[in-house]
Simulated scan of single mutants.
Amino acid sequence: MRRTGYLEHNAGSLYYEVVGTGDPAVLIHGFSLDHRMWREQVRGLRPDFRVVTYDCRGFGRSSCPTGAYSHHDDLRRLLAHLGIDSAHLVGVSMGGRIALNYALRWPGSVRSLALIGSDVGGHRHRIDWDVDVEKLGLAGARAAWLAHELFDTVRTHRAGWAAVRAMVRDYSGWHWSHADIRVPSDTGAVERLHEVRARTSVIVGELDLPDFHEIARVLQARIRRVRPVVMPGVGHLVNLEAPRTCTELLRRHLMGVSPSTTRG
């Protein structure tokens, strides 16, 4: 059974989909993408889990911010709307950053974390993220973004690249043309990783950019209950470049099959 809908919250709406039964697992997408990036994982996990996907504010079918907002507060309200007290959180890139912020704010509500090519608040990137939408226009900005080195490896995967292009084509571009009005700031998150209580898998593609390998090393060093995984032959978007392998890895993680390494 598939449930779809919109949550009205903080002068906006958040689109979500729920399928399957069992323990809740929430899959959180990366920047400029949306819930569709998880289609293969939803298909593979739904027999055993209640899988929740949604579009973060400003992405996909969700509305753009109209004032101060918080991605992790949006997620908290969505789970309350769905009657979910605690859940496994899975996030790619920006989605991993959101999952970490949620786990730091509401540690008792997180059953486990799977962080894939994750960002973390407070990391100083060497990557050039700027897209000049004023100069290029929205169509030009989308094209420039699709040419970013972040997507170099996914371009060689036909289905994954088609999915990325479709999602970026539908991205509002809001974050390229507006100041960041998220509150509170999460720039101190990198210094609080020792507070994460949940069992955590830190997953990074072998061919991902150096920044994300550096972040993975920090997460592995500072989170207490952690299992590091390097996926061979893939880059930043592991779940789109090696969907079956990623789905099986997530299944094992969610079921607690693979042991974690405890530090501290």
Rank of each mutant, 00 (worst) to 15 (best):
V154N: 08
G173P: 06
Y102Q: 01
L27T: 08
E8Y: 00
Y54N: 04
L240M: 01
Y171W: 15
S172Q: 12
S62G: 04
L240R: 01
H157S: 10
P184H: 15
H125I: 11
L113V: 09
R252F: 00
D48E: 13
M1G: 12
T247N: 05
S185A: 14
E149C: 04
R105K: 12
W129P: 07
A80P: 00
W145V: 04
V190E: 08
H157K: 14
S109K: 10
F49C: 06
N10W: 02
G22P: 02
V120S: 09
G108W: 07
H253A: 02
L136N: 01
T262G: 02
G173C: 04
E134F: 07
P228G: 02
L79S: 10
C64V: 15
K135N: 08
T200W: 09
A216N: 01
R182Q: 14
I84P: 04
P47E: 03
G95Q: 07
S258W: 15
I215F: 04
R3K: 14
S70N: 07
D186I: 15
G83Y: 14
A103K: 07
W161K: 09
I127H: 12
E195I: 03
L113T: 08
A242R: 07
T153K: 15
H123W: 15
D34P: 12
L75N: 03
I127M: 03
T247H: 00
A11S: 10
V168T: 15
R57P: 07
S93R: 12
G44F: 03
K135A: 14
H72Y: 11
I28A: 01
V218Q: 09
R39V: 06
A189C: 15
S201N: 10
R165I: 04
P210L: 06
R50Q: 15
